[in-house]
Simulated scan of single mutants.
Amino acid sequence: MGRADERSSRIEPVPGEPAAVVRAGGERVLCVADYHAGLEAALRWEGVSLPSQARERREHLLGIVGSRAVERVVFLGDLAHAIGDSRGPERDELEALFAALADRVAVTVVKGNHDGEIESVTGGTNGEIAVTPTGGIRVGDVGFAHGHTWPARRVLEADVLCVGHEHPAVRLEDDVGGTRAERVWLRGPLDPAPFAEHYDEKLDVTGELVVFPAFNDLSGGTWVNVEHQAFLAPFLPDGLADGEAYLLDGTRLGAYRQV
């Protein structure tokens, strides 16, 4: 197995799901991005009335955890939805989620831009929930960061870097001109140029970048195959110049800009 194949094998997307099993630091880790607990409550403030899907989200995740024999769950940022302190239905959802996971797996929350005060919820878990800085964390040869800011150097220089934040999706057209959006994975070699420019120094950036789809299918996304679509992460699209898109069922779509 070549080095590129070995890197790719560390990240095994769960077929049909916005989740992957990651081999990191000797552990089997289930990794998901952009859970956005409490999103429905926030949408109601904007005039969009949707029933809470908190229980369905939790059971969905627990079902994947139970089917994959993992030892840890890593939330790749934006576990919460409110920018500040989680309150009301969002806090209730997070507390129920943590309680359900506590007897099953260890939990790490990689802090995203929506997780500013996530410690106000995890503080009552007796240290069972680890929260990382916004620059991310490196576990063995795998780096985890949310993606709303530049990953820390050590995280960036891992063999594989997993990020969220972007909510990548593609717009697909049918034969009669109809369109639909599908969540996708983005994967490809990291381009070191934007990172070297940002840090103003040469970096050992030779790994693979994996951009996770959003776990929460109500959270919208970046249509990566639409011309002039603005990306959210400061290092995209330049940091993934030759990336490819994959549907949740594993279908390879090819170069994401040409889908």
Score class of each variant (00 low, 15 high):
207 G>E: 12
68 R>L: 13
52 S>A: 15
179 T>Q: 05
252 R>V: 02
94 L>R: 07
156 L>Y: 05
253 L>V: 06
106 A>E: 11
178 G>W: 00
34 D>N: 15
118 I>R: 06
251 T>Q: 00
132 T>Y: 03
40 E>V: 13
203 L>Y: 09
130 A>T: 12
41 A>G: 12
221 G>A: 13
234 P>H: 05
103 D>I: 00
205 V>L: 05
221 G>T: 15
162 C>L: 14
171 R>P: 00
52 S>G: 15
185 W>V: 07
29 V>S: 07
249 D>Q: 04
21 V>K: 08
17 E>G: 07
81 H>I: 11
182 E>A: 08
72 R>C: 09
132 T>F: 04
75 F>K: 13
41 A>R: 11
96 A>S: 12
130 A>Q: 08
221 G>S: 14
45 W>V: 07
77 G>C: 15
159 D>W: 02
58 R>H: 08
229 Q>M: 14
210 V>P: 03
233 A>K: 02
232 L>P: 06
91 R>A: 11
35 Y>D: 13
52 S>K: 10
256 Y>C: 01
119 E>K: 02
234 P>T: 04
19 A>R: 10
188 G>H: 02
226 V>T: 10
79 L>D: 11
10 R>L: 11
75 F>L: 15
110 V>Q: 04
113 N>T: 05
41 A>S: 15
171 R>F: 00
167 H>N: 14
164 G>A: 10
145 A>V: 14
256 Y>V: 02
147 G>N: 10
156 L>W: 01
124 G>K: 04
157 E>V: 05
99 A>D: 13
216 N>I: 12
109 V>S: 03
147 G>Q: 11
25 G>I: 09
183 R>V: 07
70 V>I: 15
144 F>T: 10
4 A>P: 01
22 V>N: 07
242 D>E: 03
249 D>S: 01
159 D>F: 00
126 N>S: 12
162 C>F: 00
84 G>H: 05
255 A>D: 03
1 M>N: 10
211 V>I: 14
198 H>A: 10
165 H>M: 14
121 V>P: 01
190 L>N: 02
76 L>G: 10
213 P>H: 09
72 R>P: 04
